[in-house]
Design a protein around this nucleic acid. Structure first.
Length: 565
RNA sequence: UGUCCCAUGGUGUAACUGGCAACACGUCUGAUUUUGGUUCAGAAGAGUCUAGGUUCGAGCCCUAGUGGGACAACCA
């Protein structure tokens, strides 16, 4: 591992984008790598964006280049500053710092000049057809479209009309500026695509300055060009846009042999048991199926942060899913593995009992207590130890007792013994039930010689369970989360709405869980491992009076597998 | 009745200018363990979609087929 002179270490394998970059560098096509992450500020970032963020930023880092943040804000209808702020916060939280912060809207003047230039070159025209007419004459992927009757207006008329569009002289939808390319192209995007549409709405940055706004295709490549982006990485669905990306660049390039940005596509991230489109996530928020964009069940960065995922875990995950061009559906277990891996190293251990039953240690003196020492994090000795008081009355987890346990059940049952972690071995001698037949109380005897650390009893027990002293507990609300959908691919059914697959049990609130008293005032987002249960963190709703914890992910559970068989 | 992209264990990604298919997750054993966690040791699981071709040799190259995906917003 730490022996590089080994000779056995393989060359780290490159993904196809890294291979391309190394080729470009080696062959002198570019001297420095510049990438960019280009979100549209119309929603919150999700785990799929994290993959793109990680790709762009880590590439820049690896090759000593730069990665910019550029907001693709060409459509003011859905875009808001709220989203700009949230996106920046999420990227920073993930641990990345961008070189330049740009907005496509910063380039509106420049883009307009280019549009004028295209008209002068006879490469663009104002079309008076309605959106419906344009759609109807575009043809289909297998049939060519028809040319617009306005396609051959004079340069002067086009110039005057575009100016009029800009000045707000025409109604929304009455005119559009189109590139004059080829209505018979087998690529639909080359059939005279729209460059500008009229939108008399206020823009989150340019206010009411503009009555027309550029389309994505007329803005993206040029924005890359202005910023000096060398590698413009995007997802597979933009593959068919690439010829258009290149076409616009060809029109504006002063030196056709010089610098030009290149678009390269990779497969977006798909995760099973969830949905990843902003539209669908927005729907979940607006229809109240979740509490907001940061609901801990959401695959959004803000949701996952609230759920207790760490930035390190998300970055590791983004790394491990790899980069390729083939469509994929990543198993959620990989994500869960990444969080557990990180949380195991950093989490403070705590005893918490979610569904308590009382235990009376019948041979322990009434009113006495004994201080035991618990390890804070076995993975990190420096985390130290903490005291926990052992007394006559305790609580244990209801599921750690069975009236008639099977042989493989290594916990408590009539006559059985377990180790109470960091304390004594106890033996169950009796139990009481209430009128409904529910187990209510356990009577146990402890083995005085079995004290943790100085055990001379020579008794071997198979099980060790956690517990809480009845006199030193506080109640807490614990929100137990499960997957939001109970179908692997909720959005993958043509005939069924994805919301039909919503998991009705995705949130279970445990109102009166018990927790060691010293942790009730933990700060928001602090991570814990509730021993034998899972990783939890403090929800922002939490107060010292009413602590609230979120289940991030359970521990791996071998017993659950045995039990399930 | 089009154009383009993709095709490797269950999942995801590797295999550098062709040379015995590797890694991770998951699964299953076993050991250790005062968390049925962690850790450790090990196993099973693909002969690389199909058919041709080139080659001494093909997962890598070529052709065709099959399967999957993308494209017909004045969205990005």
């Amino acid at each position: 591992m730490n022996n590089p002179g080994d000779g056995k270490d393989k060359k780290p394998s490159l993904n196809f984008i890294e291979a391309m970059i190394e080729r470009d560098l080696k062959e002198g096509r570019v001297k420095e790598i510049i990438t960019r992450f280009p979100p549209e500020p119309n929603g919150y970032l999700h785990i799929g964006h994290a993959k793109a963020i990680n790709l762009n930023f880590s590439l820049a880092e690896k090759y000593n280049g730069k990665c910019n943040l550029r907001f693709d804000d060409t459509n003011p209808v859905a875009e808001e500053d709220e989203y700009v702020q949230a996106i920046k916060e999420d990227i920073r939280w993930l641990g990345y710092e961008w070189s330049g912060e740009y907005f496509a809207s910063d380039y509106f003047d420049r883009l307009y000049e280019w549009a004028v230039m295209l008209i002068k070159k006879g490469k663009a025209y104002v079309d008076d057809q309605t959106a419906e007419e344009i759609a109807a004459t575009r043809g289909t992927p297998t049939r060519p479209g028809k040319e617009s009757p306005w396609r051959n207006r004079s340069v002067e008329e086009n110039l005057r009309l575009l100016e009029g569009m800009k000045n707000g002289e025409f109604e929304e939808g009455s005119k559009v500026l189109r590139a004059k390319i080829d209505m018979a192209s087998p690529n639909m995007h080359l059939r005279d695509p729209a460059m500008y549409r009229i939108r008399k709405v206020s823009h989150h940055r340019t206010g009411n300055k503009w009555n027309i706004y550029p389309m994505y295709d007329f803005a993206h490549g040029q924005s890359d060009y202005i910023e000096g982006v060398t590698h413009s990485l995007c997802t597979l669905e933009f593959e068919v846009h690439r010829p258009l990306y290149d076409w616009f660049l060809d029109q504006i390039l002063e030196d056709p042999e010089g610098y030009r940005p290149r678009q390269t596509e990779f497969a977006r991230l798909n995760l099973n048991y969830t949905v990843m489109s902003k539209r669908k996530l927005l729907q979940l928020v607006e229809e109240g199926h979740v509490s907001g964009w940061d609901d801990p069940r959401m695959p959004t960065i803000s949701g996952m942060r609230r759920r207790g995922y760490t930035a390190a875990a998300i970055r590791t995950f983004s790394e491990r899913v790899g980069i390729a061009k083939r469509n994929n559906i990543i198993d959620i277990s990989l994500l869960e593995h990444c969080v557990r891996e990180d949380l195991n190293k950093i989490s403070q251990r705590v005893f918490a009992v979610l569904d308590p039953i009382k235990v009376i240690i019948t041979n322990f003196p009434v009113g006495e207590e004994e201080e035991m020492m618990a390890v804070n994090n076995p993975e990190n000795p420096e985390a130290g130890r903490r005291p926990i008081m052992f007394g006559r009355e305790l609580y244990i987890e209801r599921e750690d007792f069975m009236e008639d346990p099977p042989k493989k059940f290594f916990r408590l049952g009539p006559g059985r013994m377990v180790r109470l972690k960091y304390a004594y071995i106890v033996k169950c001698i009796d139990y009481k039930k209430d009128e409904q037949g529910r187990v209510q109380e356990l009577h146990c005897e402890y083995i005085p010689e079995s004290r943790s650390g100085s055990d001379t009893s020579d008794i071997k027990v198979k099980g060790t369970i956690h517990w809480l002293p009845a006199k030193h507990v506080r109640t807490a609300e614990i929100r137990m989360y499960d997957r939001l959908f109970n179908n692997e691919d909720p959005a993958g059914h043509k005939d069924r709405d994805f919301k039909e697959f919503l998991n009705p049990d995705s949130l279970r609130v445990v109102e009166n869980a018990l927790i060691e008293e010293q942790f009730v005032d933990a700060g928001p987002l602090e991570h814990f491992q509730f021993e034998r249960k899972g990783y939890f963190n403090v929800d922002p709703d939490s107060t010292p009076e009413k602590p609230v914890f979120n289940l991030t992910v359970t521990l791996r559970d071998a017993w659950a597998k045995i039990k399930g068989k």
